[in-house]
Write a protein that binds this DNA or RNA. Sequence first.
RNA 1: AGGGGUAUAGCCAAGUCGGUAAGGCAACGGAUUUUGAUUCCGUCAUUCGUAGGUUCGAGUCCUGCUACCCCUGCCA
Length: 552
Amino acid sequence: MSESSNFIFNEIDKDLANGVYQADEIMTRFPPEPNGYLHIGHAKAIFINFSVKEKYHGRTNLRFDDTNPAKEDVEYTEAIERDIAWLGYKWDNLFYASDYFGRMYEYAVELIGKGLAYVDDQTQDEIKANRGTLTEKGTNSPYRDRSAEENQTLFREMKEGKYPTGSKVLRAKIDMASPNINMRDPVIYRILFETHHNTGDSWCIYPMYDYAHPIEDAIEGVTHSLCSLEFEDHRPFYDWLLDHLDDCRVKRPRQIEFARLNITNTIMSKRYLKRLVDEGRVDGWDDPRMPTLSGLRRRGVTPAAIRNFCYESGVAKANSVIDKAQFDYFVRDDLMKTSKRVMAVLNPLKVTIRNYPEGESELLDIPYNLDEPEGASRKVPFGRELYIEREDFMEVPPKKYFRLFPGNEVRLMGAYFITCESFVKDEDGNITEVICTYDPETKSGSGFTGRKVKGTIHWVPSGAIEMEARLYEELLNEDSDAEDWVERLNPNSLTVCNALGEPSLANAKPGDLYQFVRNGFFCADSRHSKAEHLVFNRTVSLKSSWQPPKEA
RNA sequence: AGGGGUAUAGCCAAGUCGGUAAGGCAACGGAUUUUGAUUCCGUCAUUCGUAGGUUCGAGUCCUGCUACCCCUGCCA
């Protein structure tokens, strides 16, 4: 495996070579706002920050960027910590931006003292109107030239709660004619009478992201502040602020932007995911249909799969959309190595083995992985009746169909060869039963080499179907969890949210989960104590539905 | 007077000094197979958005175009 390389590492290497930072002080941070659950897109940001820590033997902090009490909640901080830990990352320190409110306030006072910030009494609409447009410069606020003394008094009174929400703001005094709108005297403090999840009611003014973030980074000693592309335009202010704060001028972090992760047909917007939850379109943030880390976890995706996916996806500045198949590959790849394999039937068809003694049965010992016959195994009852997948039998087989059809012999996986003798149809012409014979000589593991078959098919014991599960859950046979498996496998009860291209679950296709299962993986709900990954392979292609080859 | 970014295969993506296009996914061949899976071999860019220029030599340097993304929250 080649050493990974990306432009961020290159930039850090340059900074190290130029002596901008010392090798032992490299520090990054993952700074989510606790206003929702983490999703697969965040996993990439987490991966990037922690990969810097690993490569440079540095540190990475988790910092809750909680500067807007109106949107944040402890429910989210807890979920975020849980999800990062699940992904397998350990932060060096846990910080809250809100812990720095005091210092942020003092820095604002410093700015005012230097004539670099002022209190603006304009209304929100006036500020907006005076900001100008993309092509026209803005105009100065009539309050722009207040004296430092007046501004100090006003700002202190804002903090003391003398003015109502929204009545005044503190603005940095830069340049209303700047072509970069972020430099047109950005608002850095607003009045907000809201209870904060961390600081309670001790503040009624809160710093804006643009103001708070550079200070947070500087206070913590972050060297590389990695964020997504849309903040490129904010970098000039990030640098301006640090340039004008005495404490931060010398040792200061560097902001580097990268492209967000996008996956085809996958919603990657916290705003919209929150709507799905709020409107009850899903069971919660951890609904298996959600692209959240908690949802993926419940769906059977492993942390290693996500990490490998991020690693192989690369880090760049070009906007891109990764094919979902690439994500699926890494899930399959990891599950294939680590999971137990079992048999399942989604659409059952009864098979009667005519020459198997009536009323008798035997317990077959079937290894979870037939490539490792000495490995762990489970007992599966085998008798005169059993069920196979309906797709695995055809009355009139097309060319190159290797499974069951009249006269053909196949192996029942882990059991015996069976040969189809005939089949039964109901009045409507539907096939209801297949009659076969088996060859006792061909028992799995017996070393039989007399002849070969081209097809091997899955099957489940007759009792399995009676659970209405259409799934025989072999692993948990003494456990009541089987019903959850029913729930998870029923194509009509669980669709795949990722198929959505727009904000409506109504567009999800009922067959999506089925497809998902056929694509090779699912697992027990990880909220259950006995949760365990199982790989469910079928005799058909796991990558795509088997299609009869075209006639030549 | 707009500003900031990005363009390398169907999809991601490497390509720090100019030296003759990594790797992964997908796809397609073929071998093995008690899962049509896995595994294993092999194929898949005479060309890097485009038009010129410099050079013995350009994905890399220069100039001009084009396309797409982001920015006018008291969100982050």
